[in-house]
Design a protein around this nucleic acid. Structure first.
Lengths: 286, 286
DNA sequence: TCGGATTACGTGCACCGTAATGATC
DNA sequence: GATCATTACGGTGCACGTAATCCGA
């Protein structure tokens, strides 16, 4: 058995060409490296180097050995990564969500259920979300369709309807409801990280000018202190959300109302069964 | 970087189930193994075991780690084998030959040319020989066809014609030549290790009873001390081979005469060019 | 004389084994 | 008490660094 540190040193020498440079890179002394290479030849029972006075270099066998050594070192690193990564995956739940509101509502419930685990989330939608769920990038996903897939366990979670939030004196403030076309030509404040809603805006509100805000605080400030309209939703209003001098008007469009579903892999069914049940009853209670 | 000896110990524990048994197998003490496993967890920064008082076992991460460790250890062994094997292949020439005589004649010439190398040979014929040459099992091959293949360098080497060797008083001793059918019903001594000639016997001399001898000395003894016929060849006779009370009669058959070719891979052309030339001139000189 | 490899020598750490301890059956 | 794991302790081998040496440009 040849220890990894020797292989690492051989690979470094193969890369650097001289013992001195390799030793420097390895943060060991030149004599130490010289001895190591000798030891390597010893343990293999094979010559790996041609030594001609002041110069040392790899022979054919040495070149092969160096290539194999490098591969072995890489695999060692890869192994460590996989172990650490796997361990972390056991102590964490990573959620991919297509929209921020259902994600925000889910997080505290998850934290209740899996108190000792790290909960992390990511806004992502479309094929990437589904693929990520299946490949294990995400343990849970919040979807906007009830995908039928025997690899997945999918359950209805909640619905959300978009509102607009406008100043009291805005021309739309008096409406009972609005259509997307009512916002034609408007300047409209839009927070950047809203998941798939962004694609809804791009598709159905082409004639509205969006002032996209990547920063949460800046966005909130602009909503509070300018006359531009912005989005809200029934779920946000249900949280007793109020705003001085602003009124909320529902958007009467099919594409402004979505039902969200929560999904995990079938193989994780046991782990999440109780949690899924708990979420279902919360939905029913509303 | 995790050293191999730790991985080996982890793999052994995974196999044995208890530290004590694994320690015994590894020829180290139980405390040493206990410490090693702790060190492994330390270096990975990850728990690999569940320790419940007198029992220790792998957790999920540990199982993954053990599997990866085993693979790493196997690869390390495999690497060593490949290096040693490659080194040996550089210092040795292995010949596959379809017949013993051309092989026997080639060996001393080869030894002259490559005095510092180990020359070894093997009797083998048909597809196995050709495949072995191409895959590197054999560095050189003695064939009985001039194969056309751009991967190979093939050159005419020598011819051999079979004789029979019979006692002076044998009924065939007076013939100028014999046919295979003349040996019908005969008992015939046959040395076992004669390469493709064996297949010639089986195909064209079905009605001759062969007394097959796996041992060289026994065969020679029987030829000298019994009245049974045996094979010889023009090449053997050319070596001043004589035998008290025996006469040699040529076999007049197409299938009793072969031309042999010597072959190497094209990529080895440089290495064997001079040697091939030398063989060619020797053939011409005869 | 400088740069690069090897040899010589002393040192300290890390791994080891023995022995003792803990813990469960 | 037997078995299995961990802790404690003392020893040793081995890989290291420093220093010296060798050798060729």
């Amino acid at each position: 058995m040849i220890e990894i540190y020797l292989l690492e040193q051989l690979a470094a020498f193969a890369k650097c060409g001289t013992l001195s440079k390799a030793a420097e890179e390895l943060l060991i002394s030149q004599p130490a490296l010289s001895r190591s290479m000798k030891k390597l030849e010893d343990e293999l029972g094979v010559k790996l180097f041609v030594r001609e006075n002041k110069k040392i270099s790899l022979n054919e066998t040495g070149k092969l050995a160096a290539a194999l050594a490098r591969s072995q070192v890489d695999q060692n690193r890869e192994m460590i990564n996989r172990i650490v990564e796997f361990d972390r995956s056991l102590r964490s739940i990573h959620i991919g969500a297509c929209a921020p509101q259902p994600m925000a509502e889910l997080m505290p419930i998850l934290q209740d259920y899996f108190g000792d685990m790290t909960i992390s989330s990511e806004l992502v939608y479309g094929g990437k979300l589904l693929k990520g769920l299946k490949t294990g990038v995400y343990h849970l996903a919040i979807l906007r369709e009830a995908i039928e897939d025997k690899e997945l366990l999918v359950q209805r979670y909640m619905s959300e309807s978009l509102y607009i939030c406008v100043p009291e004196d805005h021309r739309l403030a008096v409406c009972d409801s609005v259509k997307f076309t009512d916002l034609k030509g408007e300047r409209f404040l839009l927070y950047q990280h809203i998941g798939f809603w962004m694609s809804v805006c791009e598709e159905y509100m082409k004639d509205t000018t969006f002032l996209i805000q990547p920063d949460r605080d800046t966005f909130a400030d602009l909503v509070a202190n300018t006359g531009y309209p912005a989005f809200a939703s029934d779920r946000i209003l249900a949280e007793d959300y109020r705003m001085e001098g602003r009124v909320f008007v529902p958007i009467d469009e099919e594409k402004a109302r979505y039902t969200f579903y929560i999904a995990c892999r079938s193989e994780d069914r046991k782990k999440y069964a109780a949690f899924f049940n708990s979420v279902r009853s919360e939905v029913i209670s509303k």
